[in-house]
């Protein structure tokens, strides 16, 4: 049954409404669960939230769902995407403590620990590549990770490729050093003031591209398509230019201190 038809039946009241609700749940329950899993880690919690989400959707005679037909410009085929947005809002609302938290950029979380450390030292703390190599004890005995190679890899990954497809690996030739270790369970801290100043200094479009790529981990291809950036490789140029600005900003900051 088409979504419009399903909604019409749902809003019609009586027996038809009850059977349409059942069909609606059969069609979308799995999607609801997947969305709720993004906010909850415990299965029982997810199951409990599922019923709460359903209650919110049907509450006040389907007031939430009744908004869909009134949204200008939306087609019936937009219903699943719209529903994702709505159920996400409800899930966030039910999981209040996740709000208001400053998030570390998702794209950086996907880097392997050494690369992330190199990124932090270079962009957040203003170290030169030589200093980073020395501090992390890289190229020990002529072996190990070359900091320049690592740096090139970081740039390539952050600006060009969708890192979701890449699995993080820990280079085996590098001896364990607790300075490099970034525990997986705990989110790294982010220098809020530095981030804000960096972003403030970028043009609006660049800020948005940086947010979508670094914070939301969206691929450059997807960003170009959504923001209608043509040619597509302009996104890569924006990302590289933005990172250069961050580095300059950190250097200036260090010089003034």
């Amino acid at each position: 049954m088409e979504d419009r038809e399903l909604l019409d039946q749902l809003f019609s009241g009586g027996d038809a409404s009850a059977s349409a609700w059942r069909a609606f749940l059969q069609k979308y329950s799995n999607l609801f669960l997947k969305i709720i899993w993004q906010f909850e880690k415990d299965r029982d919690e997810v199951m409990e939230k599922y019923v709460s989400v359903c209650s919110r959707l049907m509450g006040n005679d389907f007031a939430v769902l009744r908004k869909f037909p009134k949204e200008l410009g939306l087609k019936s085929s937009d219903f699943p995407s719209w529903l994702v947005a709505v159920v996400r809002n409800i899930s966030v609302d039910l999981h209040r403590h996740s709000q208001g938290r400053r998030r570390y950029p998702k794209a950086l979380l996907r880097l392997d620990p050494i690369d992330r450390k190199i990124f932090d030292l270079y962009y957040w703390q203003g170290y030169s590549l030589e200093e980073i190599g020395h501090q992390l004890d890289l190229r020990k005995n002529g072996k190990g990770t070359d900091v320049n190679e690592s740096f090139a890899r970081i740039l390539r990954m952050l600006t060009r490729y969708a890192p979701r497809e890449r699995k993080a690996t820990f280079p085996t030739s590098v001896p364990f050093n607790e300075n490099m270790f970034v525990p997986d369970e705990e989110e790294p801290r982010v220098d809020v003031a530095l981030f804000d100043k960096w972003l403030e200094g970028l043009p609006a479009e660049h800020r948005l591209v940086v947010r979508m790529r670094f914070w939301e981990d969206m691929s450059a291809v997807r960003i170009a398509r959504i923001l209608k950036i043509v040619p597509q490789h302009r996104v890569y140029a924006i990302l590289q230019k933005s990172l250069q600005k961050l580095r300059t900003h950190v250097e200036r900051n260090m010089a003034s201190n």
Binding site: Q38, V46, S81, V84, A204
Partner: peptide
């Protein structure tokens, strides 16, 4: 969106619909 973390996050979330449809959940 350039200045709103919340809306960018919402946008990215809805953009993941195909992933949600593919993923397996209990």
């Amino acid at each position: 969106l350039a200045d709103c973390t919340e809306c960018t996050e919402r946008l990215a979330f809805v953009d993941r619909l195909p992933d949600f449809l593919r993923e397996e959940t209990p």
